[in-house]
Design a protein around this nucleic acid. Structure first.
Lengths: 335, 335
DNA sequence: CTGAAAGCGCTAACAG
DNA sequence: CTGTTAGCGCTTTCAG
């Protein structure tokens, strides 16, 4: 192969193969038809020159950029790297690649981020754990770019979303804690703007209440470790519970550390802890955290399925998929 | 604003503003000159229509895609999400965005990955912790796409690279362990194809040897938790050391868990553990790991600096930057 | 099946 | 300072 020239164009391949540019294009376009004889000539010439189609140029004319925009907020939460990896790999299999956009939880940020994404003519957007203004979704729809919410829902019915059954998950935790005989039960909440937080808490407290038990203590951790630590300290200063449900594993880790290190309490003998996500650290022996698993692979698979079908058929109705997550019983809570 | 039309072109803005397409282009091009009067007309028209320049079209003619390709292998290692976040944010400030490519350590994979990256006409590539065949680097150079290695070096002198001073870090660990009075010292190695692994070990053992101490035990963990666990078990079955240096924090966590959980040993009373990276979990109280910090922010800053200057001036000589990382003394090793 | 021609949305000379 | 013209590299009718 010849690596001396900077970028090889289809025109150069065409000349070398003694065919037209269209012919070259057809050979490199999956659906197109060309005689095997010509295809061979073209492929040889292309290989000799080191030619590969320019995705951007192709995007211009075909309207298919083969780019998916991913918006993600909490990369420090171990759950997300996992998702990112699976998403990226699966999309690659479908010929797409991921343009990544970080955002903080601040309102303004996400707005500019979506604009920037759209600038790249992405074919679809996955918004992982971010809240979108309805104006924003309208903008994506107007731009003809399908979007699916990952691990969040929104009131907006026009928006596709994939989540775990968070209400059901919260319910499972409540039932588990109740069955273990706990009565003084605390909850450490995530960021209250998040649907996951709301649904997990709702499923949890409703189930508690149905059993005639009121939530014994509640503090807010905002999905942030330091805040979860502070929340734990406050909770034990005022209403020390026998068991705590923490809105996600990321915070649960901080809660456990605080319990053992600052409060000198044993887990689960003195206090039971249950989390949500089944992030990698949940299974690390130091935490051995009982938690509700979010089935990452299924969630990603669903997300991609919805996104791709929306790309193929833009008029399709929005879908909302909820996947059941099992309670993974480990050692952080008495059984 | 009018969101009814799918994509708004500069031509439409031009008509509405009563100017030419070039005028619109100039208003949206940082360096270009236009009268304030016209600029205002154009901006108003653009806003009314919801116009934003098409990055891909711009890329075609200007040759600037504003895309940086990032190749990354070990996203489960907590060190990398952090990097990804910083890299993405800093690049965004410079008007670039990150197209992400996962790869396993397998040889073949990285090859196809680089081809795919190049297809997107990226302006630069950051290869984080992946080994590249020299053929590959040649291909990038031929394509005129600068690449910088992150957290890896390579013999290839043509390749820019940013790393921590891994040799120096290994040395610091050895000095620290020696000062604490340890004599039976073990090492758990990462993947031996990695320059980080080699350099850390070299700095470590050389320093040990200079003090007249030979490495007491050595096992390979390949940067994988399960393998690190097995390595630990093997090590303690054969040559139980008083202190262990583990090639990175990710493995060190597994080592500590194994020590405490399977071997019923206390840290640091029975055995000292030191890691490398200062990943988030290192400071979690459950681990409280003494480790060499890789200064992520500086590394990212350097990486971007090199990459951008190479984009601006392709003929620039390759640079190799090594940043000193401090030993962060916590509680996992006796002092 | 294959080539010629048109054009995706934009910018960069070049005139005016 | 501004408009006109000519493409960037590719696909896609449309003839042949």
């Amino acid at each position: 192969m010849n690596w001396s020239s900077n970028k090889v164009t289809s025109a150069e391949v065409a000349i070398r193969a003694g065919v037209s540019r269209s012919a070259v294009s057809r050979v490199f376009t999956p659906g197109a038809s060309a005689s095997e004889k010509m295809a061979k000539k073209v492929r040889i010439a292309a290989k000799e020159l080191g030619y590969r189609p320019n995705v951007l140029a192709r995007a211009m004319v075909s309207g298919q950029s083969r780019i998916i925009g991913l918006v993600v907020a909490y990369l420090n939460n171990q759950f997300y790297p996992e998702i990112l990896e699976q998403l990226s790999n699966s999309l690659r299999q479908h010929g797409y690649h991921v343009l990544i956009f970080m955002t903080s939880r601040t309102e303004g940020c996400i707005d500019t981020v979506v604009d920037e994404i759209l600038d790249y003519q992405v074919e679809g957007i996955v918004a992982a754990s971010v809240a979108l203004s309805s104006d924003l979704s309208a903008r994506c729809i107007a731009a003809g770019v399908p979007m699916v919410l990952f691990n969040r829902t929104q009131d907006d019915e026009a928006m596709s979303a994939v989540t775990t059954n968070n209400f059901g998950g919260g319910k499972k935790v409540a039932e588990f804690l109740l069955a273990a005989g706990h009565r003084k039960i605390g909850y450490i909440a995530g960021w209250e703007g998040a649907s996951t937080q709301r649904d997990r808490e709702a499923g949890f407290t409703k189930t508690l209440n149905s059993a005639g038990i009121a939530l014994y203590a509640r503090e807010i951790g905002n999905f942030v470790m330091e805040e979860a630590k502070a929340a734990t300290l406050r909770m034990f200063a005022n209403h020390p519970p026998e068991a705590i449900f923490v809105a996600n594993d990321h915070m649960a880790i901080a809660v456990m550390d605080t319990l053992r290190n600052d409060l000198k309490l044993r887990i689960p003998q003195d206090v039971s802890v249950v989390g949500f996500d089944d992030a990698p650290a949940a299974s690390w022996p130091a935490y051995n955290l009982t938690t509700v698993r979010q089935p990452a692979d299924q969630m990603v698979t669903e997300t991609i399925k919805i996104l791709l079908s929306k790309i193929e058929n833009p008029d399709e109705a929005p879908q909302r998929v909820e996947i059941d997550g099992p309670l993974i019983v480990r050692g952080s809570a008495v059984k």
